[in-house]
Each structure stands twice: as structure tokens, then as C-alpha cells.
């Protein structure tokens, strides 16, 4: 499976969508909609509405995040915005400001 990589010295303004894994080392502003995983690296800065199956944040995200299967906020991450997901992990050291909305229906594990 191929990746889409936004390099450290790159800035994307607009929409990134598709079914590759998205790795953000640089900057993205706008909208991110991926079928698979989105990884925001430590150097990554995302100011966007993010929707993906899995979202892992080691860098900074400002915006609403939807991770249909899971969202991970890793140490050193800075997340400002609401998270909507089935499973969430917030690591020690991470900064998170926002609401968490988990589907409390028939939990699937």
C-alpha cells in the first residue's frame, strides 16, 4: 500500500483525499478525508477537518477529527478540536483540548 506523504517543507492548502495512508510531516490546511490511516508526525501541523479510519497524532492538529475505528493522541501531540471515534487513546504528555464523542451504542470491542 502506498503512502501519500506531505514532506516537512511542504504546505498543502485544500483537500487531501483517497485511500492511501497519509503521513503529514509538513503542513495541511483544509480538509483531509482518507479511507485508511492518517498519521500526523511530530513535525506535522494540520489545520483541517480530518476524517479517516484511523488517526494517529504526534504533531499538531487544530480541527475536528473523526476516526471511524480509532484515534491516537501520542505523547508530544497537541490536539485542539473535537474527536469523534469508536476508540481513543490519549498518551501521557499529550495536550488535548476539545470534546470526545464516542459511540456508546453496541460497543464492538
Amino acid at each position: 500500500m502506498a503512502d501519500t506523504i506531505i514532506g516537512t517543507k511542504t504546505r498543502v492548502e485544500g483537500t487531501v483525499e483517497g485511500s492511501d495512508r497519509l503521513v503529514v510531516c509538513g503542513e495541511v490546511r483544509g480538509t483531509v478525508a482518507m479511507d485508511g490511516a492518517v498519521l500526523v508526525e511530530r513535525s506535522g501541523k494540520v489545520e483541517a477537518e480530518v476524517a479517516a479510519a484511523e488517526v494517529a497524532i504526534a504533531g499538531t492538529i487544530t480541527g475536528r477529527v473523526t476516526g471511524t475505528t480509532r484515534v491516537e493522541i501520542l505523547p508530544a501531540a497537541r490536539m485542539i478540536g473535537d474527536v469523534r471515534t469508536a476508540r481513543i487513546l490519549i498518551s501521557d504528555g499529550a495536550v488535548f483540548k476539545g470534546r470526545v464523542d464516542m459511540d456508546l451504542g453496541d460497543g464492538e470491542g
Binding site: T4, R11, T15, V16, E17, R21
Partner: peptide
């Protein structure tokens, strides 16, 4: 990536 679409501006 081959299965990705970027709409907007890329500045690198």
C-alpha cells in the same frame, strides 16, 4: 500516492 487526490495548492 496513487490512490490520493489533492485539490488545492501544494507549496514546497
Amino acid at each position: 500516492g496513487p490512490a490520493s487526490v489533492v485539490t488545492g495548492e501544494i507549496d514546497a
